[in-house]
Design a binder for these strands. Structure first.
Lengths: 237, 237
DNA sequence: TTTCAACTCCCCATAAATGGTGAGGGGGCG
DNA sequence: CGCCCCCTCACCATTTATGGGGAGTTGAAA
């Protein structure tokens, strides 16, 4: 049986502030022997946080140009379940190739591996390692560190969220089962008549549930109520 | 440096079918030395899959009674980001206590640890270990196996998804940037007038984007389009 | 016993969404 | 060069959603 706790979990335990986390990212990059380590997250209110080792001028330029809109790492991971090697991403479009050229000029390596992480209220975080290496040595490195990278992604994210708030349980007004039924059927594309039929109630009754849910969610209209319920993990569709 | 690959990753590599995965779940339960191991998932179309070691009669009863609606493990993990020990869940409500009594009578242990896993299209999976133990020895066990359990959750989920389909990249009709802008603003609660103002376009133009997005997503109305876009990870709100 | 929440149902008037149709300019790709 | 997609704007008629109001029954908890 191997040691109880990974060395990087011990290292992250020392982290108490976001500044600590930024410093830890540099330590972890050095200990993992890669050129860059990046943790970037979007929380449920759209606020972003990044702890990374790229050059600050490149990061500012990336944000100013809104490169996330076309960066295959962000776009590709956003639609994938599992960790992905950058070779599996689509770099063929012309704006993407131009972007990649700029990135490489600014110190970004040709190899990368990214782990998407999702939370209960639509949060999305991305953990990436990046390195300049040939394909064979990169593949060896990746195979050898796969488990550690997945764990590292998980624990960095957990530590970032702990610092950001004390707990991760979502505080949301509780919807009644019928309110959830009503929003779920609307989210699956039924109109109100169909939803009322399905629940064997009148449209008037359905409307009461919709409006009550809308009020509890603090939504301005039905579309917003459905969106908030989905974002809070209250509906499965 | 420890071995390249975890023994359980090697074991899961042997899995080719869902039946293999079911068999592997029993092996893994024995090798991890717990009473039960459970993997349960809901995909983006609402279909469920479970590989678990509970008694079949109990599982059938659980499904028939729709216990997921009140099971604190399911309800609590659904709203949480991180893995959670069952002691941290809320078991105080009377129906919950009655449910727990039935569960214990049917072989479910008093200690549990669950790892929620989320996908890009609203998928939700839950990996759980369950055991009869006192608090102290359970805490020791959990601390010692924390990293392995997180990795096991990840790889079981990955294997289940691989078997279910060949790839995890989401095939969804690409929305144009303006279409995404339109749906995003509606998802944040703006009405059409406000959204048009924000984008500095007319409501007629906004409507063209909404209806085009609706068509691409195969949605029946605007609420459905927003729901599908969210479920497919196309919007950040 | 009282209170509260959940579930159930109804009406009128106004505003918004949808069905269905029309149109033009610009840029990129085959 | 032609085609296709993106971005932009408009109209009429019908259907649906919302604003705002009314009401009753049942079961659980304080």
């Amino acid at each position: 049986m191997r040691p109880k706790r990974e060395w990087f979990i011990e290292r992250l335990d020392l982290v108490k502030t976001l500044d600590d986390l930024n410093a830890a990212i540099f330590d972890l990059r050095d200990r993992f022997g890669v050129d860059h380590l990046i943790y970037h997250s979007v929380n449920s209110t759209g606020e972003q946080y990044a702890a990374l080792t790229y050059d600050k001028a490149w990061v500012d330029h990336y944000v100013r140009q809104d490169y996330a809109r076309l960066d295959p790492v962000v776009q590709g991971c956003y639609r994938r379940f599992h960790p992905v090697d950058w070779k599996q991403l689509d770099w063929t479009a012309k704006p993407t190739r131009l972007f990649l050229g700029e990135a490489v000029e600014n110190g970004v390596g040709n190899q990368g591996y990214s782990v998407p992480i999702r939370g209960p209220s639509g949060q999305f975080a991305l953990f990436t390692i990046n390195h300049r290496a040939n394909d064979d040595s990169w593949r060896l490195y990746r195979d050898e560190h796969l488990a550690d990278l997945i764990l590292l992604a998980h624990f960095i994210n957990q530590k970032a969220l702990e610092i950001e708030r004390g707990s991760d349980a979502i505080e949301v007004q509780k919807l009644s089962p019928r309110e959830i039924d009503a929003l779920t059927l609307l989210a699956t594309g039924m109109n109100r008549a169909q939803a009322a039929d399905t629940l064997a109630i009148s449209e008037h009754t359905l409307r009461v549930y919709i409006e009550s849910a809308r009020f509890k969610l603090g939504a301005t209209n039905t579309t917003h109520a459905v969106a908030r319920a989905l974002a809070h993990g209250l509906l499965v569709i």
